[in-house]
Amino acid sequence: MYSEKVMDHFMHPRNIGEIPDADGIGMEGNPVCGDVMKIYIKVKDDRIVDAKFQTFGCGAAIAVSSMVTEIVKSKTLDEALSISKATIANELDGLPPEKMHCSNLGADALKNAIVDYKSRHAQ
């Protein structure tokens, strides 16, 4: 059902947890439908220096969260904003079609975290 890479990130997820003094927090999804992702980022000089996640959801959702927090580290905010659902799915060697819509929320949660950082920063 899942690629080896998905299973690896599901069985051994990277970057689990909260960042208590996060610079931005983004959430996406709805437990009623399926998956919910919460992403915390730490930003320094417009660059993401740390990212962690908390996820309620299926194997794909957890693997997506793990992958997005991995690839976003040391990226500039603009680079991070260009990460798409397809980028993450490709990095995971693909996702089952029915999981593309509901479980692939990592890019959206990340975007929300960056928006949150920017709104805090603007003040």
Binding site: P13, I16, G17, M27, N30, P31, V32, C33, V36, M37, K38, F53, Q54, T55, F56, I62
Partner: peptide, 20 residues
């Protein structure tokens, strides 16, 4: 549960909202 955002409870979740 350690990786769930709801580990401390549902909070103000949208859980009762109908899924579209």
């Amino acid at each position: 549960r350690e990786m769930s955002p709801y580990a401390k409870g549902w909070g103000d979740k949208k859980a009762e909202v109908e899924c579209v």
